[in-house]
């Protein structure tokens, strides 16, 4: 009896492994194809059967792509926007989360509910009037619409971190207050360090959302000098539609997804764990 059970379990593991491997291949092969195409000479692209490992491997696209499209400008703009939004925004968000979780102040509930309500509004309702606001401010075709709102914080991150901080003992706050520590100090040297894993997870999410954003740049910017990397890739793709210079487009795409994939791979543990302790109850 016990023997058949182990045998059954082993068969189960083999089947599960095979299916998961198949799934993982489905996820990865398109990316490998992207890299493979980027390393090909144009004439090899339409080869049949397709070559997975190009012969010869041609790195030239990675040098030429910078001249073909304003990719360097796009990358620089994306770096500026993302770095500012992620760093400053994280401070704004964690401070707000700290206040909502641990401090007592007037209209706390009202403000919190207002935040909750705004994330329920579909983006399409907000994007048109936001555009009008940015026109009034003279911010259209600058990076400001992509940066300024993000500097002020991120509502999802605030919810998440508030939840996390509620789980930390309030005695920490009381003890520090008795020791005469100011609120900024308590936030900075007690609560911020305790939230590191949760912050790490949220940083990945905000980084991803900002770096990958396409709708914002599409609507609020239009000249090439103010394009982000996503916009550069998109316009390259539509420009090359008829010429089908796939190696060049794939090269640009590899460069565009690399930062996020690297960050994600390094920090994936936090990313995965964050969902475990977010304790979704529906």
């Amino acid at each position: 009896m016990a023997r058949t059970n182990t045998a059954a379990r082993r068969t189960g593991t083999v089947v599960a492994f095979a299916l998961m491997l198949l799934g993982a291949l489905t996820m990865v092969l398109p990316f490998l194809w992207m890299v493979s195409t980027s390393l090909k000479e144009s004439r090899l692209v339409f080869e049949f059967p397709p070559q997975w490992i190009p012969d010869p491997i041609d790195w030239a696209n990675y040098l030429e792509v910078w001249d073909v499209a304003p990719l360097a400008v796009g990358l620089l703009n994306s770096v500026i926007v993302t770095v500012l939004v992620v760093t400053v925004g994280t401070f704004s968000s964690t401070m707000a989360a700290f206040a909502f979780a641990k401090l007592d102040f007037p209209h706390k509930r009202t403000i919190f509910v207002a935040l909750l309500a705004t994330i329920m509004i579909p983006l399409v309702v907000l994007i048109i009037p936001q555009f009008l606001v940015f026109v009034q401010l003279g911010w259209i075709d600058t990076l400001l619409p992509l940066i300024v709102p993000g500097l002020l914080g991120n509502v999802t991150m605030i919810f998440f971190l508030r939840q996390y901080m509620l789980g930390l003992a309030s005695e920490l706050l009381e003890a520090a207050k008795l020791d005469g520590a100011g609120y900024l100090r308590i936030y900075w040297s007690i609560f911020l360090p305790l939230c590191k894993p949760a912050i790490a997870a949220n940083v990945i999410i905000v980084f991803m959302a900002t770096w990958n954003d396409y709708i914002g740049p599409l609507i609020f910017t239009n000249s090439p000098e103010n394009s982000t990397v996503q916009l550069v890739i998109a316009s390259m793709s539509s420009y090359y539609k008829d010429q089908t210079d796939y190696p060049m487009i794939m090269t640009a795409s590899v460069i565009a997804v690399l930062p996020v994939i690297l960050l994600f791979t390094v920090m994936q543990r936090y990313f995965v764990e964050s969902f475990a302790f977010s304790g979704i109850k529906g």
Binding site: M20, L21, G23, A24, M27, V28, P30, F31, W33, M34, M208, W211, N212, Y214, Q230, I233, A234, S237, I249, M250, S253, A256, V257, V260, I261, F264, T265, Q268, F271, V272
Partner: peptide, 19 residues
């Protein structure tokens, strides 16, 4: 596998559509 399964999710839609 878990990391590989998340690759499409973390990549930008622009790059995915182009691909």
């Amino acid at each position: 596998f878990r990391v590989l399964f998340l690759l499409p999710y973390v990549s930008s839609i622009v790059a995915l559509v182009v691909l």
